[in-house]
């Protein structure tokens, strides 16, 4: 390289490199925040916070949200949003519960594994169907994701309520509840958590090491460039919303097993919690940037805050305020990063 060119490039390259470091630091800092929270609560209430029971319930309570958030990570990396995941979760759970009742010929309380597996498949199919609908409306009909998923948020919840006249189904296979819902493996590990971890690992693998993941980043970074490079953007977007719907279906089944109810009214903020987790984890709302690891951290920060506040007897309304502040700070950092790059 000539001395002259060093002058030409020298000034221009330094600052963006700083911006690029900030990007990496996003996940790093938010990870530090999580560790700091654990340390603080651990020091304040070592006998209550750092117990096997606390850790187990913390993990179980985040398992369903984690599965939703993995799907949401893909969606947000494409520059989209999915508000419908909570409703799709309820719909899938409801259809699944109905289907299990139907094949059991009444109450499914004593049903065996065949019926339970059938219920799982039904839940996944139901979630996938909403995902396909979202995907086609967004990618093919080119309606903004915010509007499409706001529409399916209402529609899926309404459809779920219609299926059982607005009331919950509480009779579910007891085998499903005791094994998937609150059973443990290897002595300590809740089965629900194992399911969530496996799905998260698959999601991380898909996003960070495969062609599918690479195209997801490309579509979110510059859809036009992706299209010109021969990537089927419409098809890719459709499959991402489909994937997210399928994960919401699985989450619906997990929720069914854990709560032993279709919990129609319990998931109205799941969508916002998932979006907050993903964004806190350093995934950019503007698309093109994000990690599954960041999302995992982003899921646990509100959960740890809530558990910790409960243990040290602080009203957990403070948790909502704290999470709101962290969320806004995370987006602000992301914007700063973009600005420093585009200068």
């Amino acid at each position: 390289m000539t001395a002259e060119e060093e002058v030409v490039n020298g000034g221009a390259i330094e600052k963006p490199t700083l911006g690029a470091r900030l990007l990496g630091a996003n996940t790093f800092w938010i990870g530090l925040v999580l560790i700091a929270l654990c340390v603080v609560f651990g020091v304040l209430e070592p006998t209550a916070f750092l117990t096997l029971f606390t850790v187990q319930t913390l993990l179980i309570e985040t398992a369903v949200l984690l599965v939703l958030s993995v799907g949401m990570t893909f969606v947000i990396i494409t520059g989209g949003i999915d508000l419908s995941v909570g409703s799709v979760l309820i719909f899938s759970g409801m259809v699944s519960a109905k289907a299990m009742e139907w094949v059991s010929g009444g109450s499914s309380t004593n049903a065996g594994w065949g019926v339970i597996l059938f219920g799982l498949v039904v839940a996944i199919v139901a979630g996938t169907a909403w995902g396909i609908l979202n995907g086609l409306l967004i990618a093919a009909a080119k309606i903004p994701p915010l509007i499409v998923t706001l529409g399916t948020l209402g529609a899926a919840l309404g459809a779920a309520s219609l299926l059982n006249n607005g009331s919950d189904i509480r009779t579910l296979p007891s085998t499903m509840r005791t094994t998937i819902g609150y059973g443990t493996s290897f002595g300590y590990v809740p089965n629900l958590v194992i399911v969530a971890v496996v799905l998260t690992l698959i999601g991380a693998w898909l996003l960070h090491t495969t062609v599918f993941g690479r195209h997801t980043f490309a579509v979110g970074s510059n859809a036009e460039a992706a299209r010109r490079s021969g990537i089927g953007v419409t098809r890719h977007l459709t499959s991402i919303y489909t994937l997210t719907g399928a994960l919401a279906g699985v989450a619906g089944f997990m929720s069914l097993a854990y709560f032993g109810s279709t919990t129609i009214s319990a998931h109205s903020t799941d969508n916002l919690n998932a979006i907050a987790a993903v964004v806190m984890g350093g995934t950019s709302l503007f698309g093109g940037v994000g990690t599954v690891l960041g999302t995992v951290i982003g899921v646990f920060i509100p959960a740890v805050l809530k558990k910790g506040f409960n243990i040290i007897h602080v009203q957990d309304f403070w948790q909502m305020i704290a999470v709101g502040a962290v969320l806004i700070a995370a987006v602000w950092f992301d914007q700063q990063r973009r600005r420093s790059r585009n200068r």
Binding site: V211, A218, A225, A226, S229, G230, G287
Partner: peptide, 30 residues
Amino acid sequence: AVAPELDPAANLFLGREVRRSGLLGKLGML
């Protein structure tokens, strides 16, 4: 028409990604 969030190598191979050999490549691994 480049994807600004991807690195130069990823941009060079955009839409023509090189896959690993064998089963991992069939699974879509880069």
